[in-house]
């Protein structure tokens, strides 16, 4: 087991180093990406702040609480950009062109070699900014020492849930061949998750919490941090992660069998 882990870690280090050497050979793109993230960050923060210039509450939360939620989600987004984002696009491209053939041939777990393949170092440059804001708003909402200890784990948990949902969605590319639509769907899902769960009502909220638990990604941990009585949502999240992991493993297996490798 330990040997297996160290093998995967060795391969992952190579993934990172090859990605970095590709990325840095396109310097302009590299710099533009940093700016892109930067603009996205400020337009998100800006929009919410401007709304709060005119209202006191959105749902039960006031400005600092909502901005803490938002910076939490932006932090997830930053990590997502860094570790996973590009692999989703490459995956759809590889299925369409049949380049996936070579990925399948490698003696590794294919979920790993497909979705962990591309690392984006440029996102690292914005991480201090994202983290700084997260900490600032964390202070504003009076996080306790316990909360601060929990925070990194919760971030990992949220990211894990988000990507497992996205992996499952992406599995459908085996059937659809053209993955553009699914990638857009993924981005729409991220948009839904970028707002706290209480803005959604009724059935839709239930569906997005239980069936496709995208709303748990941010709302689970943040509700818990702000109010320890809201631990149920966090528990649901852990359960959801476990169940969805099994769903992923099962659908992925079926998907691979369905792959019909575009002819050369």
């Amino acid at each position: 087991m330990l040997k297996k882990l160290s093998h995967y870690w060795d391969v992952y280090k190579k993934f990172v180093s090859t990605s970095v050497s590709v990325e840095t050979s396109f310097r302009t793109s590299f710099i533009l990406l940093i700016f892109m993230d930067f603009f996205f960050f400020f337009s998100s923060i800006g929009s919410v702040s401007f709304i709060f210039d005119h209202v006191v509450n959105i749902g039960p939360w006031e400005k600092n609480q909502l901005l803490f939620f938002l910076t939490f989600m932006l932090m997830i987004d930053n990590l997502h950009m860094m570790i996973f984002s590009q692999s989703f696009w490459e995956f759809s491209f590889h299925i369409k062109t049949g380049q996936l053939d070579y990925v399948i041939l490698k003696p590794m777990n294919t979920i790993f070699s497909v979705f962990f393949r591309h690392f984006r170092a440029s996102s690292l440059f914005n991480t201090p900014l994202f983290l700084g804001y997260l900490i600032y708003y964390g202070i504003q909402v009076n996080l306790t020492a316990f909360d601060w200890v929990m925070l990194p784990f919760l971030i990992v948990l949220s990211l894990a849930l988000l990507v497992v949902i996205e992996f499952i969605l992406s599995t459908s590319m085996f059937w659809l061949t053209d993955g553009m639509g699914i990638n857009f769907l993924r981005m729409q899902m991220q948009q839904l998750a970028r707002w706290p769960n209480f803005i959604y009502q009724g059935l839709i909220r239930k569906v997005l919490t239980v069936v496709l638990p995208i709303l748990l990604v941010g709302s689970g941990p943040v509700h818990f941090l702000l109010d320890k009585n809201a631990w149920q949502l966090l528990a649901t999240m852990v359960v959801a992660l476990v169940i969805l992991t099994f769903v992923l493993l099962a659908t992925w297996k079926v998907g691979l069998r369905r792959y019909d490798s575009a002819s050369s």
Partner: peptide
């Protein structure tokens, strides 16, 4: 179809395959 990475030297791809 190529399995080598287009944007980097072949040796980098080989090193990755070594780990694989």
């Amino acid at each position: 179809k190529s399995q080598l990475w287009w944007d980097i030297p072949a040796m980098d791809s080989f090193l990755l395959l070594q780990k694989y």
